[in-house]
Design a protein around this nucleic acid. Structure first.
Lengths: 207, 207, 207, 207
DNA sequence: CATGAATGAGTCTTCATTCAT
DNA sequence: GATGAATGAAGACTCATTCAT
């Protein structure tokens, strides 16, 4: 019972992610979601108060999960050049790539700007929570080989607009890019990694 | 007559841009657009066949205009370090910044992926049309000081995901960023420029 | 001036007949009529007070014309078997066949029954106006060889439902019948005449 | 559950028949239909995909039903003069008379000619399906006393334009005829039957 | 848990008609 | 006479949500 119930709710959520990503939250219809999930429309309202709540649930789960990964990354004392660091980076990139649908939804809703804080901003808030002892982190990171900007605002802008945003947008547009430019998925990913290495990651070493 | 008519149509388009940017195309209501533009709802359908056509018109005009700016930039024989080049770059950045609303709409519709080619892709297609004599351009650009990637696919990915996309997203999120991180608009713009200089633009000199 | 004006009005009417016949009065759009007639929509309202008035004009003209033909027929003292009578009958049939579009409109509007008197009823009212000296006519006709029913109501029903209605409906459906049953137009007309001869016209001789 | 649902759908259909007959399909409003049927407008779209589909459903049901009656009639080996045959004929006439609303709709839509085959044509297609062994039927009918035309096309035209069409149109115009000519319904029906007997039915005996 | 039926409030679009020139 | 622009009032159809079972 509980098993089935959980599964049904999860299935609804999974289908909602797919659907919202494809049509946008506004463009998606509860009817269609019911069809996709193979459940009665009314059942959706048994699990969720409203269409809106489905969206919120999706965001909350994702932010929490992404949070976990970043936290783990941040708390590990591995150096920039170390294999472990590379592993974490890879893992995070992979995580974003795997959740392209949620990122699509998040991006769209962020752009519309209905919420006080755009959901995507939360991805950087996590990696650099305001409460933290800034200087400490910077010194720590520099020890690991990162040449971090000391000005927090400047640092955030660099991280977000030339690091996270390209990563998100690549995740979002990868498929369409491959189709349009006739590139294989593997090549596309390799080339994007190189692009990030040549631009964003390079700047850590600059100066 | 013609005067008034043109103006009315333009007003509808301007309001549509504003509205679509705020609510997304799907979230926007024709009723509201009519109210915003101060015209009768039916008049909108006198000028445009459908809500969809308004969107297409917006995109077409923008792509055409952006095209013009880039064409001019490409056809001028100025060197990378020259003031003229800097001026053009600035102009294009400014252009994107000024059209943040259109970029919002474009980005959302691109993410949803209804069209074969995501509208945003057209911004890079223009700057590097497939028909062009690739080698010629690269040599030309290298003369001007640009260290362009010779592999076209790699070059496009770099240009798009670490150049255009950050520019677009900055345009889109600037206001929200300023609000959220309590930065002045001027500072924000300055910092973003520095961020781009340190990452994307730097790579032209790399190697 | 007057020339052009008259012509324009006539063209509008002709196109209206075509359009109303094809789509029905309710299904026809003034916009489309304007396009068909090659005039500005507003001009239609210069000539006619409303869409409704166009319909009325069409009906009035037709009734008046049909009236004329029937009057002439009735007032001529030719016998049933005479060539002249056959000529008139033919002429009337031809007239109906040529005005199939108007008959379509008339039939549709008659069926809907908005007006007190269905327009098609007027076609029989004419041929047998109530004010006339019934007996006189019957005697007259019998002299000419027609075996007319003496009961007016019975006579009207016979005339209308087995004479005029088949004639009208043949005019209306002729083309579609030819298409559907793969018959040539000429054959179809010949067969219909025979059908009428064998049924309706035959009854005049009965008894 | 099923009970109510079926009833509701049936009620919508019944009201649609009434409404379409009165105003024509194009002139009828879904809003009004909802009001008439005492249901929410959206419920109509729960049962039917579109206004159009309501019409199709009405036609399909009627054709199927009429089909049934005619099939039964055709398959019974009763002679033309027998009481049974008269009973069947009466039954069919009664059936048409009872469904004057559907016939009105059918006639209007047939006249407009949107569909490849005018719905009314289907009433004759049934009574004389092309695939059947023509000669056999004719011989069979002749045995029963019917003097059927051997030329199929001629026969169809006689049946349709002097048999079915008068029957349909009488059904359609009966009420209006009674009102206009101040005849009682009973008298009107009697007179029409006599009219058909004197014209269409008489021809079976001719020759 | 699950569902078929029902609904109020839209949502895009259309239409006959009018106005100003 | 003629026209492009404008409009109020619907029109078909949709959607998130709820109810009864």
């Amino acid at each position: 019972m509980k098993r089935d119930s959980e599964q049904t709710k999860a299935r609804i959520l999974q289908c909602a992610i797919k659907l919202f990503a494809e049509k946008g939250f506004d463009g998606a219809r509860v009817d269609e979601l019911a069809g996709l999930a193979g459940v009665n429309k009314a059942l959706i309202y048994y699990y969720f108060k409203s269409k809106e709540e489905i969206l919120e649930t999706i965001f909350d789960c994702f932010i929490k999960e992404a949070n976990g990964i970043l936290m783990e990354m941040a708390s590990t004392g591995v150096s920039f050049d170390s294999k472990e660091m590379g592993l974490y980076m890879k893992q995070y990139s992979k995580y974003l790539l795997e959740n392209s649908d949620i990122l699509k939804i998040m991006m769209i809703e962020s752009i519309k700007g209905k919420t006080k804080v755009p959901p995507v901003f939360k991805l950087i808030d996590i990696s650099s929570p305001e409460g933290t002892d800034e200087e400490q982190i910077i010194i720590e990171m520099q020890k690991r080989g990162f040449n971090l900007e000391t000005n927090r605002n400047q640092r955030l802008i660099i991280e977000f607009f030339t690091g996270i945003i390209p990563e998100i947008c690549f995740s979002i547009f990868r498929k369409q890019w491959c189709n349009h430019f006739k590139v294989s998925n593997a090549d596309c990913v390799t080339m994007f990694k190189k692009a990030i290495d040549m631009t964003h990651k390079e700047h850590y070493k600059n100066k």
